[in-house]
Write a protein that binds this DNA or RNA. Structure first.
Lengths: 339, 339
DNA sequence: TCTTTTTTTCAAAGCGCTTTGAGTCACTGC
DNA sequence: GCAGTGACTCAAAGCGCTTTGAAAAAAAGA
């Protein structure tokens, strides 16, 4: 059943039926009711392909997820981010086009999405400190939101959290507890979030006159194993850290394993603060998991970023939308005074 | 730049240009080269909306991800499954439409996707023991692949692993080690995979004359916390299990935490076998994580399921495609003889 | 009653592509 | 010299919808 047939069955023109269905005012209430009833009865659904061609809008937003080449690894925050963003899109009648591409095909993917018109807007994940995608997207003229920041993002729209302040705060908190050997188990510092966290860590150490040590800092994909390995290696040092900062709760779990394996206890001999994206299947809180953490729910970010994108698509000429969210430090059971 | 303009700039008709670009034979090699060169120079990309309307194919596959209502939780396997499936789609020139919907809107979502023609095929996630989606999709006439099985899936296409056999095997293995109190920390048994795993567990106990105990079985969303809680509760019993089976590595990590918390060691006082989907950021193996596990990489499943779907879209009339993958039991350091 | 305004409906022109059916042109072979 | 064959190319007809500009019908005003 298509519009033409539906119109014929009602003895109306396609125009009238289309207007009736789309809520235009130039249709008598009685006629509209008749049309809606018939449409429902016939299970009529307008063909999206035709609709999109006719309107020139694709009613689709694109998420391009870069797949890190070596490990073929998908950042575990994506599923939660996508889930919450997806809800917003669905509510607004938009489709979500997910594009999974190797890290060096990302640029080509954006270019293609833009030029073949298959999306009305884009979400940018995992921005790097300097990121070729930002200038590219600016030049393409498609609305986009960056989840995070990057060089050149002053003039574009983004949603980010205070990574630097959060880690500065966390580091200070550990120093206040008497720790002066603090390990940082960070994400890859080519990524802006990790770079900023490092800056916060460095700044706090410097401000408090605590001397840094390169051996106390590692950066990599934030897996459990990476946390375990890093903590193990650092704990083997003569001047082993007495406290750790991790950039992901998965790495924190790895640190916990390394610590437990040595018969030590988090919050006693070793302290740990992790960043917590509040992943739905890795809740921090109940039952003693309770890492002391800088918390910022990724789902809230996904939801808000999607809303911002919708708004930008509706009114592309509006100035850049930028939101910088504060991050709270929540106390768990993994921090205690230095022994 | 659109086809019309491109054709005009070349003094050719749209037909010829279209044929040249799409590799049809009725074009002189020289002409084709000229067209391709001009297209590249002008950064021409055919408008997908128009292409899809004209061809009647949407070149899109839909993944509908049900969001469990209570916890708003996304199964962590989805991101890996999507990533690997997405690669296949990209390679074949298909888009991936991701639809995140509440668990009771799933049916409506499928119905809509089918009737407005926005996808050429569908992937069905998380089938239940009896699942209304299966008969619905059969009636809709869209190609689809079920990741898992369900009542009525005998006549449709699916890819599944031997859940029942895997857990029967694992249970037998534990019994062979002398364990006769075995806890099962399962997923929600409304889901087919969990139901089958339970069957395997039950069957092994029965066959070996080991008496079951309802207190040794729990089912829920497979979080870390759930594993921790379940193990804790069971270890508090007078007749506490000496071994555990878990349906997810996350729950296994929770069990490990509970066990460690009591000063016990996995592989010594308590044994543990987990199912391992080989999630990219939760590798089992290196550095002592090494759970004894029934392994089945979810990425392989995603890739293969996507290939099957592509094949089904290309030739929808072909008989149902069904693959049942064996699951291997790999030894780690978390199993040992009962004490 | 007749014009003017408003309401309601319509025919037809796109949107940018693919594909059909027909045409042109240069070669063959008889 | 002419039909017969390939090799190329083209004009035009969709695909199913939205939207414009115009017309018909109904209501209002003079």
């Amino acid at each position: 059943m298509n519009l033409k047939e539906l119109a014929a069955s009602l003895n109306l023109s396609q125009t009238t039926v289309s207007r009736a269905l789309n809520g235009y005012p130039e249709v008598r209430a009685e006629t509209r009711a008749r049309v809606l009833k018939a449409a429902r009865a016939a299970h009529y659904e307008p063909n999206t392909r035709a609709q999109r061609l006719a309107t020139g809008r694709s009613m689709t937003v694109g998420h391009v997820i870069p797949l890190s080449d070596q490990h073929q690894m998908v950042n575990p925050i994506f599923s939660d981010f996508l889930a919450s963003a997806g809800e917003v899109y669905a509510r607004e009648g938009y489709d979500l086009l997910l594009s999974i591409v190797g890290v060096d095909e990302v640029e080509a993917a954006y270019r293609k999405l833009a030029s073949n018109g298959s999306v009305d807007g884009l979400m940018v994940h995992g921005p790097r400190v300097t990121d070729a995608r930002i200038p590219l997207l600016k030049s393409l003229g498609l609305p986009f939101i960056v989840h995070g920041r990057s060089a050149g993002s002053e003039t574009c729209s983004w949603l980010d959290i205070q990574n630097r302040a959060a880690f500065e705060h966390a580091t200070n908190f550990l120093i206040d507890l008497g720790h002066c050997r603090i390990g940082l188990i960070n994400g890859l510092e080519v990524f802006d979030f990790a770079h900023r966290r490092r800056q916060g860590y460095d700044a706090a150490l410097q401000a408090r006159g605590v001397s840094p040590n390169p051996a106390w800092v590692t950066c990599d994909e934030m897996t459990e194993e990476f946390g375990y390995r890093s903590a193990n290696a650092m704990l083997d040092l003569d001047d082993a850290p007495t406290a750790f900062l991790t950039s992901s709760i998965l790495s924190a779990i790895g640190v916990r394993r390394a610590v437990a394996h040595r018969g030590l206890t988090l919050g006693r001999e070793v302290s740990l603060i992790t960043h917590d994206d509040v992943l739905s299947y890795l809740r921090n809180g109940g039952d003693g998991l309770a890492f002391t953490a800088t918390r910022s729910p990724i789902r809230d970010a996904g939801r808000r970023a999607a809303e911002m994108l919708m708004s930008l698509i509706d009114a592309p000429q509006q100035g850049p939308l930028q939101e910088l969210w504060p991050v709270e430090l929540t106390l768990g059971r993994t921090t205690g005074p230095a022994v």
